[in-house]
Design a protein around this nucleic acid. Structure first.
Lengths: 163, 163
DNA sequence: AAAATATCTATTGACATAATAGACATTTGA
DNA sequence: TCAAATGTCTATTATGTCAATAGATATTTT
């Protein structure tokens, strides 16, 4: 293999930060209009603050979060956490969930293979896509927050060190 | 979303070319030592020849293909197509199959989140990883070649145009 | 010896990513 | 009313990878 080893089907750091930030907002979500400061998220999740600004701003334009300015300002989810799926978040931040664009539902692009409609690779990639989407569409920020709460209460198991 | 839209969990073009080239070698595989010329693969799959050289050379160092030099030279699979999985190929060309390195079996890397062992995102990403790996480990070049043969015999179905 | 092929190493242009920076707007509350 | 703390917006930069290209070399067959 090359020196790089960056990874094939990988989330960018930006996408990872987005998920981490939204997990915080999902956990702290209340029906009133309380907000969480960027600085708090940045501290808690070790995310560069200025970079996080951009990401949250981006998520705002997607209608996923909303913001309040001023001295008591900050961010909150724009809709309840059980109505925000991981698929929605990642599609906005990164684009297609599919491993190749020719099997993407939302971002289809023709590929360069000789006959796309009879491409065996494409047909396997469709399976991969479906299995990724199944998890991502099914999991909401509320699920994530629940899971986080559960994990916090559990003792550390040895099997969690290396997987 | 940003202007880019390159995609989150995507295969690189290099990886796609590798699969397409290997599919050709898988289909043409014979027990004798017959080889396929780079030029033939390049023509058939519309892959830039010089780029394909690099990719095949890389696959050779992985023990996936072997080559024969000289005027009747070319490439062939180093082992039977039913013993080469897509996972093996992509891991060599691109690295981890996991969406985040902290859930990778073969390329584990620590991530920057506060407590990896209790990270809810990680636990979801493990599910994603497992479902990707399940397909990739299970599918061999022989499966791919079979599938290609089947697809070629089938009439074009309308549903194959847009998915 | 000539022709056709693979091999190796280096380099390039384009692009995206991740991060940084500075100027600005808004809100609160002292 | 002003100052302080926050979010907003627009640029810019450093870095790195990807995809492709190029040139010189080695090997094999005829």
């Amino acid at each position: 293999m090359e020196i790089d080893s960056l990874g094939a089907m990988k989330l960018s750091v930006r996408g990872e930060y987005a998920l981490r930030a939204l997990l915080v907002l999902g956990r702290d979500y209340l029906e009133d209009d309380s907000v969480v400061r960027i600085q708090a998220i940045s501290d808690q999740q070790h995310i560069p603050k200025r970079f996080l600004e951009q990401i949250l701003n981006d998520l705002k334009s997607a209608g996923i979060v909303e913001s309040k300015r001023g001295v008591a300002g900050g961010y909150r989810l724009h809709k309840p956490p059980d109505r925000i799926t991981l698929a929605e978040i990642i599609r906005h931040i990164e684009g297609p969930l599919a491993p190749v664009s020719c099997v993407s539902e939302k971002f289809y692009e023709k590929c360069s293979c000789p006959d796309e409609s009879r491409c065996a690779i494409r047909s396997v990639m469709k399976e991969v896509r479906d299995s990724i989407v199944k998890v991502m569409e099914h999991t909401t920020l509320a699920d994530l927050a629940d899971r986080a709460r559960t994990l916090e209460q559990e003792p550390l198991s040895a099997s969690d060190f290396m997987i």
